[in-house]
Each structure stands twice: as C-alpha cells, then as structure tokens.
C-alpha cells in the first residue's frame, strides 16, 4: 500500500507534487547558473536579453583565473596520488593488521571528516604560521591531504574487506611472492575502491575552500579561493562561467564513477 506507487491513492498526488518541487529546488539554481554564464547581461538579468560567450572569453584571457585553475589542479592531483597511496597502505593495516587499537585508529583517521572544517582551518593557519607553510604549495597539499585521506581510507577499506583474501593466498600458492600477489591480484581486485578513492580525494581537494581561504596568499590562490574573493565583491557573470565549468567537471566525474560501477556489474 504505502510502498506501492500505483496504490498510493490521493497520497500519490502529494508525493509527486513535493518531489517535483524539491527536484526544481535542487535543479533550477544549477540550470540558472549555466544559463547566466551564456547570458549577455552584466547584471545577471533573467531571462537573459541575449546570448554571448563573453564571460568565458574574459575568464580564459585572465591569467589570474588560469593560474588559480592550474594551482587547484596541481594541488588536487598531488593530493590524489598521495591520498590513494597513503590510504592504501593504511587500509591494509586497518583491515588486516592485528595490532591493538585498530578501531580507535580508524576512528581517528575519519575524524577530519566529521569535525567542522573551520576549526581545522583556523588551527592549521596558526600552526603553518610558525612553520611558514601558509601560502605554499606544500602547505596546501598537506592540509588537503588530511581532508582527502578519510575518503580514501573508507573507499579502499571497504573494497579490501569485500575482497576474498583466499584469492591472494591462492596466488601465493601458485608461486607468486606475497608482494607480487598483492600487485597482480589484490590491487586489480580492489581497483574500483582505488578509483573511488581517487575521485573522492580529487574532489575533496578541488572543492575545498575554507582551509584554502585562510592559507592562501595573493600569489597562490586556488580556484575556490578566487571565486570566494570575487563573490565578496560582486556577482560577476564570470563566476557563472567558472561555476558552469565546475558543474561540467563534477558531472563528468560522476559519469565516470557510474561507468566504472556498471563495468563492475557486467
């Protein structure tokens, strides 16, 4: 009755209405940004009086935006590699280790995910002041690594726990050394976990803004920091263009994740 859409009676109308409303609430702002990024109005009139690529041109001709884009990308790329590598090792230890306090350690590794970011941002800002790491590439990488690592550990640990360890044992009995068995059998076996870990680590760094606001220097600004700084001054349509590109990137990564999931089922 209540879980049968066809037999929901008058409740069905209410449910469809709310779903429609919330769907619009969630989707329209995103569509609005995309539309405005192609709109000709400097003051974000809607519907736009005309269409233009002017804001994209402004964006791509501004070396500061390009620099921020590259900075964000480099940081996110380095963070992704380190996060997956460190996360992979940690996950092996957490799922297969027999040392005491494994659960406590797992909880500690996940804490950065549940703690308010602003606390970490302020704390790291103070700490990096002393180490002269604020405004440095290395500082950004370290900070974002702390944010990204929990995603890596969750994704890879889950995959490792689902991976039948007897398969690795079988590889060893077949003559592979323990390391060779891990590389040739276990890593391919958990590849979807590794891909998830990479995607989430990348997004965690790429989208991170709070810590970055504190740590950024005029010379080293990630993309989110530049967006935030611009937004505090005015609602330039250039931001709509940047946002549209970011939405496209997110949608692309989501499609990639969905593709790998489907691939796993076939």
């Amino acid at each position: 009755m209540l879980l049968d859409f066809a037999r929901l009676g008058p409740w069905r109308v209410a449910l469809i209405l709310i779903a429609l409303l919330v769907g619009a609430y969630l989707l329209l702002p995103i569509l609005l940004i995309i539309a405005l990024s192609f709109g000709s109005s400097q003051w974000l009139q809607f519907p736009p009086p005309g269409w233009t690529l002017r804001w994209y041109e402004e964006l791509f001709e501004d070396p500061e935006w390009i620099a921020s884009f590259l900075t964000s990308f480099k940081i996110a790329a380095v963070v992704t590699v380190l996060s997956v590598g460190i996360g992979l090792m940690a996950s092996f230890g957490l799922t297969r280790g027999t040392f005491r306090g494994r659960e406590a350690l797992r909880a500690l590794f996940l804490t950065p995910m549940i703690l308010p970011v602003v606390v970490l941002a302020v704390a790291l800002y103070a700490f990096f002041l002393r180490l002269h790491l604020n405004g440095t590439f290395f500082g950004f990488v370290l900070a974002h690594l702390v944010i990204a690592l929990p995603f890596s550990i969750i994704a890879i640990s889950n995959a490792l726990e689902r991976f039948d360890r007897d398969i690795e044992t079988a590889a060893i009995v077949c003559g592979a050394s323990p390391l060779e068995a891990k590389i040739r059998v276990t890593l391919p076996g958990i590849r979807l976990g590794l891909i998830s870990a990479a995607i989430f680590s990348f997004l965690a760094s790429w989208d991170e803004v709070v810590i970055a606001i504190f740590m950024a220097s005029p010379d080293l600004q990630t993309l989110p920091v530049r967006i935030y700084g611009t937004l505090r001054q005015d609602l330039s349509p250039v931001i709509a263009a940047v946002s549209t590109l970011l939405i496209a990137l997110t949608a692309g990564l989501m499609a990639l994740a969905a593709f790998f999931r489907k691939d796993a089922r076939s």
């Binding site: 940690a90 280790g97 040392f99 970490l120 704390a123 370290l142 690594l145 690592l149």
Partner: peptide, 22 residues
C-alpha cells in the same frame, strides 16, 4: 601485533597536520 607499519605514514600525517594543530 602485526601490520602496524603500513599505517604509520597516515598516522604521522594525522598527528602532525591534524591532532597537534587542533
């Protein structure tokens, strides 16, 4: 008591860049 070693890089990171600053 086995398997602690691979956790150490992550532990060092979390302690230095998270626990101590906070």
């Amino acid at each position: 008591g086995r398997g602690l070693a691979p956790v150490l890089p992550a532990l060092a990171l979390i302690v230095v860049v998270f626990v101590i600053p906070v």
